[in-house]
Measured scan of single mutants.
Amino acid sequence: LNLKQAKEEAIKELVDAGIAEKYIKLIANAKTVEGVWTLKDEILTFTV
């Protein structure tokens, strides 16, 4: 999975969960695949 694909998957998951745009922007700015997954997990843990 490359960075672009990771971001697309994570953003789709966050949108489906009804997460606010400000958190989705954090994913869009992530620099690594690991960073994308870590941010996604943290956002889902603390906002859902």
Rank of each mutant, 00 (worst) to 15 (best):
L39H: 02
W37E: 10
F46R: 14
T32C: 03
A10L: 05
A10G: 02
D41I: 13
A20C: 10
E42D: 08
I19G: 02
G18M: 05
V15H: 11
V33K: 03
T47A: 15
I11N: 02
D41S: 09
T32N: 05
W37Y: 10
W37A: 11
E42G: 05
Y23V: 03
Y23K: 02
N29V: 07
K7N: 01
K7V: 07
V33W: 03
A28I: 12
I27M: 04
A17W: 08
K22T: 08
L44E: 03
G18T: 02
D16G: 11
N29Q: 11
K40P: 00
L39M: 09
T32Q: 02
N2G: 10
D41K: 09
A30Y: 01
T38M: 14
A10R: 01
E9N: 07
Y23Q: 02
F46Q: 12
T38L: 15
V33E: 04
I24R: 05
I19V: 15
Q5T: 08
T38S: 11
L39E: 01
K22C: 14
I11T: 07
W37F: 11
A17D: 02
L14E: 00
D16E: 15
K7R: 07
I43M: 05
G35P: 00
N29I: 10
V33H: 03
E34D: 09
I43T: 01
I43H: 01
V15M: 14
K22R: 10
W37G: 07
T38G: 09
K40I: 10
D16H: 13
N2Q: 12
V36P: 01
V33S: 03
G35Q: 15
L1R: 10
A20P: 14
K25N: 09
F46T: 12
E9V: 14
L3N: 01
Q5C: 07
I27W: 00
I19S: 04
L1P: 10
T38Q: 14
E8M: 11
I11G: 02
T45H: 14
V36A: 02
D16W: 08
T38V: 13
E42W: 15
L39W: 03
L3T: 03
A30R: 02
L3C: 04
G35Y: 10
T47H: 15
N29M: 13
A30G: 03
T45S: 15
V48I: 12
Y23A: 03
G35M: 15
V48E: 10
L3E: 01
T47V: 15
L44Y: 06
V48S: 13
E8L: 11
L14A: 03
K40D: 01
A10Q: 01
K4M: 10
T38W: 15
K25R: 11
E13P: 01
K40M: 14
N2D: 13
K4V: 11
K22N: 07
A20E: 13
N2L: 14
D16M: 14
G35A: 15
V48N: 12
N2K: 09
E9C: 13
E9I: 14
E13Q: 13
L14D: 00
V15G: 05
L39F: 04
K25G: 07
K12T: 05
K31H: 07
A30W: 02
E8R: 12
K12P: 00
K12V: 04
A6I: 06
E42Q: 13
D41R: 09
K22G: 07
N29H: 11
I19F: 06
K22I: 11
I43F: 07
F46C: 15
K12Y: 03
G18P: 00
N29K: 11
I11Y: 05
L1T: 09
I43W: 03
L44P: 01
A28L: 14
L1E: 10
L14P: 00
K25V: 12
V33M: 06
K25T: 08
A30K: 03
T38A: 15
Q5A: 10
T32F: 02
F46S: 13
L26C: 12
K31I: 09
K22H: 14
E13C: 13
T45N: 15
D16Q: 14
E13I: 14
K7D: 00
L1K: 10
E34N: 06
E42I: 14
K4N: 09
A20I: 06
E8A: 13
E42F: 14
K40L: 15
L3I: 07
L39A: 05
L3R: 00
A17S: 06
A10V: 07
E21N: 08
E8S: 08
I24A: 05
K25D: 08
E9R: 14
A17T: 03
E42A: 13
K12G: 04
A6Y: 04
A20T: 07
A28Q: 14
E8T: 09
A17G: 04
E8P: 01
A6L: 05
I19K: 03
N2I: 11
T45K: 15
A17E: 04
E13Y: 07
A30T: 04
T45P: 04
E34G: 05
I27C: 02
D41F: 10
E34F: 06
E42L: 15
I27R: 00
E13V: 09
I24Y: 09
A10W: 02
E9D: 12
D41P: 00
I24G: 03
A10C: 07
E34T: 07
L3K: 01
G18F: 04
I43Q: 00
K4D: 10
G18C: 06
I27K: 00
L3G: 01
K25I: 13
V48T: 13
E42Y: 15
A30E: 06
K7M: 14
Q5S: 08
V15A: 09
A17V: 05
K40E: 02
L1W: 06
A28K: 10
Q5P: 01
V48R: 13
I19W: 04
K40Y: 14
V36N: 01
E34H: 06
L39Y: 04
D16P: 01
I27S: 00
L26D: 04
L14G: 00
V36Y: 01
E9F: 12
V15T: 13
T45Y: 12
T47K: 10
K40H: 08
A30F: 02
E21K: 08
A20D: 14
V33I: 11
T47F: 15
E21G: 07
I24M: 06
A20R: 05
G35I: 12
L26Y: 05
I19A: 11
A10N: 00
T45M: 14
G18E: 03
I19T: 05
L44T: 04
E34L: 08
G18Q: 05
L26G: 04
E42H: 13
L1D: 12
T38F: 14
E21D: 10
L3S: 01
G35K: 08
K40F: 15
I24F: 09
I24H: 07
D41A: 11
L39I: 10
Q5M: 12
T47P: 10
W37Q: 14
T38E: 15
V36I: 06
L1V: 11
I43Y: 05
I19P: 00
G35S: 12
E21W: 14
I24C: 06
F46W: 13
K4F: 07
